[in-house]
Design a binder for these strands. Sequence first.
DNA 1: GAACTACATTTTAAGCTTAAAATGTTTTCC
DNA 2: GGAAAACATTTTAAGCTTAAAATGTAGTTC
Lengths: 163, 163
Amino acid sequence: MASNTKSVALDHETRLHEDDHHSLKLWLRLLTCSSLIETELRGALRENFNTTLPRFDFLAQLERVPDGLTMGALSQRMMVSGGNVSGIATQLVKEGLVDRSPVPDNRRTFIVKLTPKGKRTFRKMAEEHEGWVIGMLGHLELDEVEQLMTLLARVKQGALAED
Amino acid sequence: MASNTKSVALDHETRLHEDDHHSLKLWLRLLTCSSLIETELRGALRENFNTTLPRFDFLAQLERVPDGLTMGALSQRMMVSGGNVSGIATQLVKEGLVDRSPVPDNRRTFIVKLTPKGKRTFRKMAEEHEGWVIGMLGHLELDEVEQLMTLLARVKQGALAED
DNA sequence: GAACTACATTTTAAGCTTAAAATGTTTTCC
DNA sequence: GGAAAACATTTTAAGCTTAAAATGTAGTTC
């Protein structure tokens, strides 16, 4: 017996001091959780589909909006800089998964949308992707998930207010 | 009246469908929260101290351990690849904030530790850093933080089990 | 309508990050 | 003790990411 079930993982939280503020403890636990999940998803996407998380994210946002999105809207939704989206778009267009075309009324803007190939490719990936996420979070009870969603909404609120 | 308090933020969650699995919804809310906080902290570190989050993280881990850490231990705690830590170490050594020296008994390993200058520099940054984090998370009640810590421990557990 | 300002996007330069290969060291195992 | 495996770190190449500058377009204001 005596298998030590206490978590002794080495992660962001290791840097905490006993007397650090609870906000800091919370932040580092949050960061540890998202780092773990992100690393797992990135690896799975690479091994199974030879692609990356930002590319997947890009396609995921577009799949939700059949009429497409402007570069700026996509940048907001992906929570990354405009320049970043620009580069990823260029690649996905070259790979034939995405179409980027000008709009008639405003020559500054471009609309990106999935091509049929992009839709097919994304759907295959999305199915497995969901499975990986459930593999990591599916052990939580439904009421635990609900509590988390509510509490994280409060976190989001506070983080957004800080701008 | 009638100010719409409902969040209409554009973020990772925008890509969700109504009928997506609750695990996926939870993951995207978690990711949105850490993206928001990370972006805020990155910007504040740059504006106030002309430094970056990974550099700060590196120093923070070392400050916790006066005797220093091996490159490998640091890599685990920062949750990034060894090569990544290697590059950051080279910079911080050049800036005089960190000392990287061989250990006598094992010529493969290196121990990194803060220099006095590194300690001073870090402490100045850490104080403000804590303030920024409290600015974003301090509005949560103590019992909300406790619930989050418990629930996120469950998330962490599930994400770790997936290896 | 000319000048100014704001906007949408792309480009650029610098730094972060990873996976994989390379290097050098230590341990294991016959 | 020599070969093979494991280990710790660094290097490399490719891709991600950002802030800031550049480009081109639209709106505003006098």
